Amino acid sequence: MVRSSPLFEGLASRHVADLLRKGGVRRCPRGTVLFIENEPADCFFMVLEGWVKLSRLTAEGDEITLGLFSRGDSLAEAILQQPERYAMTGQAVEPSRVLAIPAQIFLEQVSSSRELCRNTMLLMARRLLAAQQQLEQISRHPTVQRVALFLLRLCRCQRGAATVELPLDKTFIAARLGMQPETLSRAFAKLRQHGVEVNGDRVSIEEVARLQAFAAGRHN
């Protein structure tokens, strides 16, 4: 799994072996806090199973969800920043397993491996682009279309009927899409007229191409 991650693509076997030998796997029940905003960044993390939420607190004390990460995603690139403090709080929102690598070990590998240094820079650039695209999506697309786009990303086919399993509690999905849970519920209800039925965590899509047309604004 580590080798298949974009972060470690092309990395020499000895570098991968060093990282794994000096790292460790943690089992995290739902609700486990991996790291806290503004605390010293002493570990680099990769999600092996489950889902981890990244969040920050506003000046008023409200929590803002900034990202949800799953299998193969790396976390806490804050260890590359100065001063090395976590910019966010990381918490398991489902039972999870994560790979934890001491920050100093990871930094040593970044310094000695051109591939890892390059991959880390590319990953951070992609994260910035993804954040920009998410902001653009929130500003450009109505809530119902945002939910439709989310469902389409879970589909494994481009046309025909499909059934998808929601990977997270609806509260976290709402936060990921920049809306309140009640707004998400109303959006699911409105999608019925476009062939979408929600039953618990299972979503049935009557015709994927039809939902794609709606999400793209090509509907009557």
Rank of each mutant, 00 (worst) to 15 (best):
A100D: 01
G23Q: 08
P6R: 07
R202C: 02
V164F: 02
G72P: 03
F69H: 11
V33T: 14
E136R: 14
A100Q: 15
K170G: 02
T58F: 01
V144L: 14
G61A: 08
L75G: 04
R3P: 01
L151D: 14
V144W: 08
P102F: 13
S113P: 09
M124E: 10
Q109C: 14
T171W: 11
E37A: 13
C43I: 00
I105H: 14
S13L: 02
L152Y: 05
Q158R: 12
L75A: 04
L11E: 04
R186N: 06
G72V: 04
E60A: 13
C157P: 00
P181S: 05
V208C: 02
L191F: 09
A213D: 14
F35Y: 13
L107S: 06
V2K: 12
A174W: 09
D18Q: 12
L129D: 12
R186V: 10
S113Y: 03
T89Q: 04
I64H: 06
M121K: 11
P95A: 07
F69G: 00
E94C: 02
V2M: 13
M121H: 13
P142K: 06
A131W: 08
T120W: 14
E165N: 07
A125G: 08
L20C: 12
Q91G: 01
R21Q: 13
A213M: 12
Q132H: 11
Q133E: 12
A92C: 03
A216L: 15
R56T: 10
I64T: 11
Q81S: 12
S112L: 08
E84F: 01
L168R: 08
F69I: 00
